[in-house]
Each structure stands twice: as structure tokens, then as C-alpha cells.
Design a protein around this nucleic acid. Structure first.
Lengths: 350, 350
DNA sequence: TGTTAGCACTCAAATAGTAAGAGTGCTAAT
DNA sequence: ATTAGCACTCTTACTATTTGAGTGCTAACA
């Protein structure tokens, strides 16, 4: 599937990509021979670059300017050239310390992750909170608010709390709420929230028709609201992207704002990425420019990873930036955060 | 205190301000006489403008260009010239319908307010959720999460729910949590959350030392966390500001991002504005450029208002934009939203 | 005395022309 | 197969030059 590129071409291609990632300027043959130790003259480099252009890896913004990598080149670089280096030990330790200070609340861990990611990478970070729907219910409680409105508090076995407000078709008083809580707790204890169903409610005998009706309403509503709430994305470091020449005009920045504010879209991208990775046995997922389904994302690259509980992914996080992204460095950082997060979540939740 | 300006000067000043608000271009005497029916020649206008410049109401970006209003002029305009017109009935009805559709959850009402505000004004809207600490406690419940970590759920008499996670110094089991909940409920029922204190705990006899200790920890922690959480600001319409020529360079936009992301600062500005208004008996508070304490806000204007429960302000909302802002229009819109919010909140909470 | 027409002057923004610099492709020599 | 040399291209930066909106001042006018 992957076309084989001769070593010298490969070396030149890598140099072009590296240089362009650093400078954002089209790269010419003379610059290349000056800055990199390629062992051949500019003229030879010119010939090779001409070939690489023919092959679709490079392109010229204008005749007689240097060349820039195509998205195909980035894909080749990510798949065949770069390697994910392990982050320096000192850095990993700093990351670890940061998490210790961040506090144990899930929300703190999530926002801390977003901050660390955006600070280390200098791109914009996006983080998906743990998908509570995949966790098992330890405790569930219904608290009446006012009239027909109740608060449902859910606690997972790991001690993660989640609450949802629901409007029901009839008024609920304290006694009813308690009874309904007890019924649901007995049925749903140790069940994953996403598997909540009303099937078992029929088997409970001592329910009034109204109570049964309310429970029938409540269970699917809770499940849906829970799934809905899981597209909440925490973003950090929007400002970082403003430093790149790719976003040097107000129009481009408007487009950028659209992307960063489209939280459900970003959630979808991360979830899709995670699923593709499960197939490929990869832990870092890279989506480059046009590879993104969504129109708004065609000029961005997104690198994502997941964190896990008991070997199953429960959350995702990633970085969004221009297609001219430092794929290698970002991958290393994501890898380190992933390890820290897995270790940390395990520790936190066990 | 306010200098008196002769009617003709006032009329000319108003025309300059209006024109500059519309066009963002320095206004010259010829343009003014063409666009507004001032009944005098450009030469006369020139003389008057020259006077107004001397008086500090106008300034020239460069010699031999038109003039633009100073912040002093905007202040004069807001205080002495503009009047807050009531919004058209059709518009008020649209706003009302919007709220009906938005749903009853407090969070929906808040984010809907931000959206409506930014859409109608074309500036960036900021909204402060109701300050639950000023409400009275109907019900309070402690739910154990894991080890020494508990969730505290608070419900106000109006049915607003708020929850806070707390780490305690000892492990808490179901029985203890229940007992502590009961104790707190009996003491704190109908007390405003901001008045929570530990004084009454000593009077309860049947507590173990550990329980007493935990309650002593819990009460101030809850109160502090609650107050802390009340600086959460919901913003909407950041992108709107990018359309104004005031923010036409990347550097200016970076500054803008700093401001819009500084949520605690915006919260402070709104709360301070509300307090000043209570003194002045005004419902709309305008803070122009340098009048803002914070350095970052010196080139912005902020117009805020409050919404109330039983005559006391419990939340605030407003609009942030360039000093060249449509103060008159924005004030009208804020006024309409304020009325709607007060009516709506009343209806929602009673 | 207040108002206005006329005029010389100023300055920013737009336009056009020019030079510099980095790069290319092609050809011919090594 | 590689490379030096050269003519050519195209963007960017720089430098007049022009245009237009606006000003202040003076002198005439009601």
C-alpha cells in the first residue's frame, strides 16, 4: 500500500518536512543543503524535490518559490519516518507532580490535563471527561427539587458523582423519592449506566401505578441525559494557535473560533479516533487535514489518545493545530500523558 | 458636577458620537453637515468641534483628520444625551418565547441568556448564575463517594440544586452520612447558605467526637466552595467582537482573548457594578474604558445589569465590547432582558 | 457679533514603479 | 549520476507620487 521511497529521497523529504514545521516558510534547495547535512549539492536536491513533487509529496505555492509538504507527505512522515520518542524522565516527573497537586475531583483532573497538554505542546488541547455511562452504578438517589422536578445523583463504584435534573409527569414528595431510590438501587446496583433499562421494574410488586409510571419515565431519561452530557469537551490554549502564521488574519481566526467552539464535533472526532485505534492497535491517533470528515476541520490536524479503566477506554484527549504540526513531539507528549493518566486514574479509582 | 454644554454643541457632539459608533471612522465637518440636518455650515461645525476638542470631548487621531469622541464624550453621552428606549413589543415577545423554550434548569436559563444577549447586541455577553449562597437551604444531603470523600447536595427552597465534593479527614460510611445529613438539615434548614456556621453544632448532644469533627470541617468548606463557585461566568459571542475594526489584528485579538477568558475578573466587574447601582438607584451600569479598574479592560466598555429575587439582586449579566459601543441600544436590550429575567425567575422559583 | 465661503496646507491611504532576494529548470561539463 | 552556471520567475520591500478628506485661518457678510 505504501509507496517505497529511496533512502536519499526519504532523507530529503524528512528535511523539508522538519524545516517547514519549524519555519512555516517554503523550503528551497539551497537552504536545505545549507541547513542539513545531506551530502549532495543543491542541484541534486532540486532534482529530487522535483521528483517528490511529481509523486505528490511536495508542492510549490508559486512557481519559483521553495516547496512545502503536502498532506500526503505528513501522512508518510507520521507512518514511516517519525518515531515516538519517550519523554525525558524529568519531564515525566513534572507531569506526575502536577497531577498530584491538581486534586482528586474528576473535573480538576480533566481541566488540569487540558492545561498541561496545551502548555507542553503549544497547541490547543481538548479533553473528554470519563464516560460515566460505561461505569457501574454503586448508588443512585432521587432528590425532589420542586413540584415535578427531581435531581438524580449517581455514584459509580469508583466514587465518581454525576447528577442530572429531570422533569417528571407528576409531583414527587420525599417519601416517593425515597421509595423510588430504593427500588432503582436494588435493581440497578452494579449495572453499567448505559445498560439501564426498564425491564426489571415490572417485577417489583409493591409499586403504585404512579410510581411505576414515573420510574418508567425516569430510567430512559437518565440514560439519555447521561450519554448527552458526555459530549462535553474541555478545551485549553486557544490562544496558543494565534501565534502561528497559519492564523494571521481575522478571517482565519474566525474559522478557528468556529472549530474550537464546536464541542460536540470535537467530541465526535475523539471518539471516532479512539474506535479506529482499537482496531489498529495504536494508542495515538493522527488525523491530518482532509482526512477529517468535517468541513471545518479540513485545514487542521488532530492528534488524540485515550485513557482507560480495566483495559477499556473511558475517556479521550488530544491536541488540535495546523496541518503543519509537530507530529513527533506532540505524539511523545500525548503518550506520556496517557501513561500518567492511566496510572493516575487507576490510583484514583481503586 | 457636569459641565453644561450649549444645545448646538450638544447636538453636534451627539452627531459625532452617533456617526463614529456607526462607522468607526473619524468624523469631519463636511460629512457631518451632509449626513445630519444640523442647519449650519461646515465652517461653523468646524469651530464648534474645535471648541469640543478643547473641552476634552473630541480628539483627532492625526492633525487634519476628522475627530473621534473621547471616553469623556461617551460618559457624557451615556449620562446626559441618550435615553433608554423600551424595546419593541414584538421583540420583547420573541425574547419571552425564547425563555419558555429554553427549559427550566438554571443552567439552561443562564446559557440561554448569554446567547440571546450576544445575538441581539452583536457584542460578547457574560452572565453570572444566581448566587445560590444568598438563597435559603431547604434540604442538604451528604452522600459518601469513596473513602474520605463525600458529595454534598444542597437544594434551595426554590428548588435550585447545587453540589460540591469535599475531602474529609476521616472515612464516612452510609450511616454516618445519613446522621450528619440529618443533623445539618435540622440546624441549617431555612438558613441562607452564606450564613452557614458551626456555632450550633455544639448544641447537638448525640454526636461522636469524629462526627463532630467532620461536621466542623464540612460546614465552612461547603460555604467557601459555594462562594468560590459563584465566580463562574458563562460567556457567549466572542466571535461577534472579531467583526469590529477595533480588533483587526492578531495582537489585539490576543488581548481580547485574555479578557474574555478572565472569568473571575468579569465576575468581579459585574458584582462591583451591581453594588454601585444599588447605591445610585440605577438598573443599568455602564463602565467605559479607563473607568475600569483592571488594566486589561481599559480599552473595553462593559454594560451590566442584575436580576433579582424578592427585590434583592442574586445574579448579574452584561455585555462587553469596544468603547465605541452602541450604549443606547445595548442598554435597551439589557433592560428588556432584565425584566424578562425577573419575571421569569419569579415564575420559575415560586 | 456670529456665520460662512474660500484657500492653503496636512496627512493617511492607495497606486505604481523599481530593486532585491530566494528559488527554479535547463544545459553542459565533470 | 552529479553538479556548476545561467537565464528566468515571482514575492516582498521600498520609494515616490497622487488622491481625497479634513483642518485652520482670513475676510466678507447678515
Amino acid at each position: 500500500m505504501v509507496s517505497i521511497i529511496k533512502p536519499r529521497k526519504k532523507k530529503i523529504l524528512e528535511a523539508v518536512i522538519r524545516d517547514y514545521i519549524n519555519t512555516a516558510e517554503p523550503v528551497g534547495s539551497r537552504t536545505l543543503s545549507r541547513r542539513y547535512d545531506l551530502g549532495v549539492s543543491p542541484a541534486t536536491i532540486r532534482n529530487e524535490m522535483s521528483d517528490l513533487e511529481e509523486m505528490g509529496y511536495l508542492m510549490q505555492p508559486h512557481t519559483s518559490s521553495g516547496r512545502i509538504p503536502t498532506q500526503k507527505a505528513y501522512r508518510y512522515y507520521v507512518d514511516e519516518i517519525m518515531q515516538i520518542k519517550k519523554l525525558a524522565e524529568t519531564m515525566r516527573r513534572d507531569i506526575h507532580k502536577g497531577y498530584l497537586q491538581a486534586g482528586q475531583e474528576i473535573e480538576s483532573a480533566v481541566s488540569h490535563t487540558a492545561n498541561v497538554l496545551s502548555t507542553l505542546t503549544n497547541y490547543t488541547a481538548v479533553v473528554l471527561a470519563p464516560r460515566v455511562s460505561r461505569f457501574n452504578c454503586k448508588h443512585l438517589q432521587i432528590i425532589p427539587l420542586i413540584r415535578n422536578r427531581v435531581l438524580v445523583v449517581m455514584v459509580t463504584i469508583e466514587g465518581i458523582a454525576k447528577n442530572i435534573e429531570v422533569n417528571l409527569s407528576a409531583e414527587v414528595d420525599d417519601a416517593m423519592a425515597l421509595k423510588m431510590s430504593n427500588v432503582l438501587n436494588s435493581i440497578l446496583k452494579d449495572v453499567a449506566f448505559q445498560n439501564f433499562g426498564t425491564d426489571l421494574i415490572d417485577s417489583i410488586s409493591e409499586l403504585t401505578p404512579v410510581e411505576k409510571q414515573l420510574l418508567d419515565e425516569l430510567v430512559p431519561t437518565i440514560r439519555d441525559a447521561l450519554l448527552e452530557s458526555e459530549t462535553d469537551v474541555t478545551a485549553s490554549g486557544f490562544k496558543n494557535l494565534l501565534n502561528y502564521p497559519e492564523f494571521n488574519s481575522v478571517d482565519k481566526i474566525k474559522n478557528l473560533v468556529d472549530v474550537v467552539e464546536a464541542k460536540p464535533l470535537l467530541a465526535k472526532v475523539m471518539i471516532d479516533g479512539a474506535e479506529k485505534d482499537e482496531h489498529n492497535n495504536r494508542v495515538i491517533h493522527v488525523s491530518i487535514g482532509d482526512e477529517n470528515d468535517n468541513q471545518h476541520l479540513k485545514e487542521f490536524s488532530i492528534i488524540t489518545s485515550t485513557y482507560e479503566r480495566e483495559g477499556l477506554p473511558v475517556g479521550a484527549f488530544g491536541v488540535i493545530g495546523p496541518t503543519r504540526m509537530n507530529y513527533s513531539q506532540v505524539s511523545s507528549i500525548l503518550d506520556a500523558i496517557r501513561e500518567e493518566l492511566n496510572a493516575n486514574i487507576m490510583k484514583l479509582l481503586k
